[in-house]
Design a protein around this nucleic acid. Structure first.
Length: 314
DNA sequence: ACTAGCCCCTGGGAGC
DNA sequence: TGCTCCCAGGGGCTAG
């Protein structure tokens, strides 16, 4: 699933491909993916949750189109696990890919209305086929969202308003932020009571870590996922801070993690899944001590760990 | 302040 | 073979 390295991979690649292009049109067969902030219907739809009337979706779709069509793409950035596409006139599009969403960039065969892939086999990869949103771009290009589970969210609106949404405003610091020192990391983790795994996944503590990297970081640091934050020594925290940054940097370098549905904007897999030590390795031998990897539930999420070298006491 | 549980979805695996 | 049931998983939300 897309976590910091995967989202960074997408953002960096988009930056190379779509800057300066204009959005010419929007298509969607699942408009529930879309949200807007500059319209009262946004609130209405959020509140109704389950039953969204077709007429409301139609209105929302129209506002979304008004927000983005005819706009030029000025920049692409990442905040936590969110991709921000900056448009002319201070509007932005926020994309959160959630579990199975990923953005695909391609040329577009306008005559036959199909994407033209640069790479062979990409269109045969099943996970690239669940396309529910397309931005038609100038120059015969397209940007599509493939999302098997339809959990992804795409929100348009004025930059100021989007950045004040809880999706962005409540996020903790980015692990790669220059100001995110060890002292800051330590303070934020220690201020949160609870299990370390839950705290690592909490995007308000720090933004970008998800289930895969949390499990892998805890294994490297030999910390049991259920360890209360107050029981973790400064030495261990320091190691966690360093290992986390190194792991994320390494994963970005090799294109992220494609254990599940993640693909980059060209539809290609990343390689981090080849380096997993515990995630989805239940029953396999720990590469450090040969004990069998176990899986437990922590805060509703599955957690993988080595019962021998990740002891609860620190 | 924290936790447990539900919801959103669908492919895939298990069981019959 | 084919049917039904159940589950994962990020994050928002509510109830306890």
């Amino acid at each position: 699933m897309p976590e910091l390295p995967e989202v960074q991979t997408i953002a960096s690649q988009l930056k190379k491909e779509i800057l300066g292009l204009t959005i010419l049109g929007v298509w969607s067969d699942w408009p529930k993916t879309l949200q807007v902030v500059s319209h009262k219907d946004h609130l209405k739809i959020k509140k109704t949750k389950k039953l969204v009337k077709a007429s409301e979706l139609k209105k929302l779709y129209k506002v979304f189109c008004d927000d983005v069509i005819g706009k030029k793409i000025k920049n692409v950035s990442r905040i936590g696990k969110n991709i921000i596409i900056h448009l002319s006139d201070e509007h932005v599009i926020l994309v959160h890919q959630k579990l199975s969403g990923h953005l695909l960039f391609s040329e577009w065969d306008i005559i036959n209305n199909v994407p033209i892939s640069k790479k062979k086999g990409v269109l045969n990869d099943k996970v690239n086929g669940y396309i529910h949103l397309i931005f038609y771009l100038s120059g015969g290009k397209m940007l599509a969202l493939s999302d098997l589970r339809k959990f992804a969210k795409v929100i348009s609106g004025p930059k100021k308003e989007i950045f004040s949404l809880s999706d962005i405003a409540n996020l903790g610091p980015d692990p790669f932020d220059k100001n995110f020192t060890f002292e800051k990391f330590k303070r934020r983790v220690k201020n949160k009571k609870g299990k370390i795994k839950t705290v690592l996944l909490n995007q308000e503590v720090l933004a970008g870590i998800g289930n895969i990297y949390a499990d892998e970081i805890l294994w490297v640091c030999k910390i049991h996922p259920l360890t209360p934050t107050e029981k973790i020594s400064s030495v261990k925290l320091k190691k966690m801070y360093n290992e986390m940054k190194e792991m994320l940097r390494f994963s970005i370098k090799i294109g992220g993690d494609s254990m599940s549905d993640f693909r980059n904007i060209y539809g290609e897999k990343g390689k981090f899944q080849k380096y997993h030590k515990v995630y989805q390795k239940k029953g396999e031998a720990c590469t450090r001590c040969k004990a069998k990897i176990e899986r437990i539930k922590v805060g509703g999420r599955s957690s993988h760990y080595c019962p021998k070298c990740q002891q609860a006491a620190c």
